[in-house]
Design a protein around this nucleic acid. Structure first.
Lengths: 84, 84, 84, 84
DNA sequence: CGCTTAATATAGCCAC
DNA sequence: GTGGCTATATTAAGCG
């Protein structure tokens, strides 16, 4: 066989550790998702249009992505032109 | 008119506040997503099978969900049978 | 230029064709949704509990899905254990 | 008791019939969903932008809905004005 | 009719 | 770098 009891136990501990760390991070992630929902619920309670708010957030996120891509391309051009 | 400059300004502030809070929470969420990825990358570096690890995490999560669903269905049955 | 009047006309015809085919299929889909609703309405008229019926259908569908998932997981395990 | 073996058997047959009819209709619905997907895949293979096509279909669907709503409102107005 | 769940559409990721 | 797959975000439906 290619392994023994000791290395299997090590792998088992390692697996357990990884799974638990991921599960904790996912739990925190779910909490944030819930908090985001709460913000929208509260906003709705204040008379705001949630769908429109979501659209605004999505647009700004998109803008951010495109700005970052533009900067990346600019950096590439600068590097290519020896300007960096 | 149904609004005036003051209430519009208030709405504007409210909208701005909501959008910023959501964006901050989404930023934190993205950080967590990145951290989860890092855990898997590290696990891979330690010789673990990432796909299998993801399956384990998913199965455990699924078990939790199914346990909750089973309770819900049990309640439904109880209600249908007049046991509630 | 990368296109000309002819290829644009072809694309236009293609687009029109695709949109129409999708719209026809969606129309048929909506008809089916309506027919399903009618079945439940009729069942209700015959004294059946629609919510319970929906639960039965959902459970049977879920069983099918879970059986398929179980096979997928089994395959994954076989692969992980070098049994495939 | 409010039922007997015969009426229970009738209800059972009725339930079975309803469930099967719904399942058949849902199967047809799923087939249509798959066919729609295939149309888009084929369109993609022909160099079309699937996201844009979906947007077109959605816009036209929206137009239809809004036109129907407009007609409904128009009918209401006509009735109110004794024009129907 | 609103509010909670289910269906659909989109986006990100991984492997090939 | 493309295509399938998973996860997420949006939309629609059902229920009270």
């Amino acid at each position: 066989m290619s392994t023994n009891a000791t290395s299997e136990a090590v792998a088992s501990d390692l697996i357990k550790s990884v799974v638990e760390r991921v599960e904790n991070l996912e739990r925190e992630k779910r909490d944030l998702v819930d908090q985001i929902k709460e913000v929208f619920v509260e906003a709705k309670g204040n008379g705001l249009d949630v769908k429109a708010l979501r659209a605004v957030v999505a647009l700004r996120r998109q803008d951010t992505v495109e700005r970052q891509e533009a900067e990346t391309i600019l950096d590439l051009y600068k590097t290519a032109l020896g300007m960096s």
